[in-house]
Design a protein around this nucleic acid. Structure first.
Lengths: 135, 135
DNA sequence: AATTATAATTAGTTTTAATTAACAAAGTGA
DNA sequence: TCACTTTGTTAATTAAAACTAATTATAATT
């Protein structure tokens, strides 16, 4: 699908909003991505072109099936990275979120899967973390 | 100093070239960062403004003291990330390099230090890696 | 229903980082 | 030393992603 990083961010934001409620508005996106409304409108028009979202003028935004699939992939990566940052690197939630956003686009599925495994094992066996970080 | 990601990349490239030989030329940078020469010339003019490099027209590029310091910081991050990708995530050298380039700008010193420690411990105690990645 | 407030859009601009084409300087070999 | 190759520079464009200001549509309130 080859979306730019910023378009991936917009799609991910919509996905996050829609987890809680059925539809999404531009103001919802603005609360997540801190940019001006025209920037969002512009991004949405591209996502619409790519058939990842549905939106009629001045109205709600929803994800197409394709859009859901793409967004979910992106968000899964995000979560895996965030979890590792929290559980291994002792990031607080907010910083973990920020950094995950910044780097998530660059990781392949395989690497993300390894991160998930690592997080699980660290949670299961707390000694592992101690040994890893021992100086 | 607040350099953009791309300017950091240029500075880092110069640093890498200068590890092997006393000066750097635009063609050397081009071998590392795959862009056109005018792009490099333009980046250099900004780095010059910021007093991070010295360059007289049609001639060599060297790093100022400040430039060396900045570049070395960036490159240290790069190395730490690359090493972890190789030793824990089983990346080959080239892929590790590519990914490190993409994400290095986003990591703080502290996190990078943790990565270094992790890499050392994994090298010392191979069992650690097995336990971390066990499914 | 009219007014006001909120939300979305359009138009035009800026910044960053890249490009190609054309040109200029430096280096090299006969 | 002159021609040729390599290297570096300039100028003019392009594209992505942001912005502000002004406008329009929708929703809410009295």
């Amino acid at each position: 699908m080859q979306l730019s990083e910023s378009l991936q961010d917009y799609l991910e934001a919509i996905f996050i909003v829609i987890q809680d409620k059925p539809v999404c508005r531009i103001t919802d996106i603005q609360k997540i991505i801190n940019v001006s409304k025209p920037s969002i409108v512009n991004a949405l028009s591209i996502l619409k072109e790519k058939k990842l979202i549905n939106q009629q003028k001045y109205s709600y935004i929803t994800l197409t099936d394709n859009g859901k699939k793409e967004a979910s992939n992106i968000y899964c990566k995000h979560l895996a990275i965030k979890e590792l940052l929290i559980n291994l690197f002792d990031f607080d939630k907010k910083s973990a979120n920020t950094l995950a956003c910044e780097i998530e686009h660059h990781f392949c599925k395989k690497t993300v899967q390894i991160m998930k495994t690592m997080t699980e094992n660290i949670k299961k066996h707390p000694n592992l973390k101690k040994k890893l970080l021992k100086k």
